[in-house]
């Protein structure tokens, strides 16, 4: 049976792994290649490397890092951050990345998704979405929407700019345009370690025909189980709980197996 995937996410800034707490206040968490190699040995199913400086401080290529990861690690990895056009994708894939994740650029120019899918295949194209529940929109916006009800809205540039796009509509559009997977980060849950946004994940998973990766909110092993069972996610991504050794991946997988979640065992 297809296993649920555990994916450590390594946010990279200036060649070092960092993790934001609600997208601000970075804490150092080590060398990205070494960290990735250790995760791989401990049973991580995939890795995500995000160049978090890219989209708002200008494009800094981390191609060298991507090459080092590809040379040293024998499980798949996705890279993201600052991918704006097809030639960025081409360079990252040529450096050895298995998939790319696009976020802000895809919202600004949705055609990018189709271009990636057509040129490199859907399986390469992960569409990352940062969304938050908006209880009350800006006053000017509210004038036009007096009946506003709280809803999931997508944000750009690491959560700085609201797009007004509804999460579920945008995810469906991304799928139709050729996305291979959706990586959904709940900004409300991210960094607070109180569990994933399971209700929204479930809605996404039930309405889309492509895999959903849960992101934002992991604090305990139970949170992973809930993301898989309640949230119906295909994969769960987390950062700080792994980086700071709060949860060991091998123990997490043993726990999930006991709870009836299919996970990959490393038997060789």
């Amino acid at each position: 049976m297809l296993a649920k995937r555990i994916i450590p996410c390594l946010d990279v800034k200036d060649g070092t792994t960092v993790k934001g707490i609600n997208f601000i206040n970075f804490r150092d968490a080590g060398d990205p290649v070494e960290l990735g190699r250790q995760y791989s040995e401990h049973g991580a199913d995939e890795l995500v490397y995000l160049d978090i400086t890219a989209s708002h401080e200008g494009r800094k290529t981390f191609l060298d890092l991507v090459r080092r990861v590809a040379a040293n690690i024998n499980i798949p990895f996705t890279v993201g951050g600052g991918i704006n056009e097809l030639k960025d994708v081409d360079a990252l894939l040529n450096a050895g990345a298995d998939k790319v994740s696009v976020n802000s650029a895809a919202i600004r120019r949705p055609e990018l998704i189709g271009e990636i899918a057509k040129n490199f295949g859907s399986q390469v194209c992960v569409v990352a979405i940062d969304a938050n529940i908006v209880e009350k929109p800006e006053p000017t916006f509210r004038l036009n929407h007096p009946q506003w009800i709280p809803q999931w809205i997508c944000f750009l540039n690491g959560g700085r700019i609201s797009t007004g796009k509804n999460l579920f509509d945008w995810a469906k559009e991304a799928e139709n345009r050729g996305a291979g997977e959706i990586l959904f980060t709940s900004m409300k849950h991210d960094g607070v370690k109180n569990g994933y946004a399971n209700e929204a994940l479930r809605t996404l998973s039930l309405s889309l025909g492509i895999p959903i990766i849960a992101s934002g909110g992991a604090g305990t092993k139970e949170h992973f189980r809930d993301a898989f069972i309640e949230g119906k996610s295909d994969a769960a991504l987390a950062a700080s709980v792994f980086h700071f050794g709060e949860i060991a991946i091998s123990e997490l997988k043993a726990y999930l197996a006991e709870e009836g979640v299919v996970v990959r065992k490393i038997s060789i």
Partner: peptide
């Protein structure tokens, strides 16, 4: 061809 909702395509990930 997916037979039920959880049959996501592409088939991505680790399988036996």
């Amino acid at each position: 061809h997916p037979q039920k909702q959880e049959n996501k395509i592409p088939h991505i990930g680790w399988n036996n």
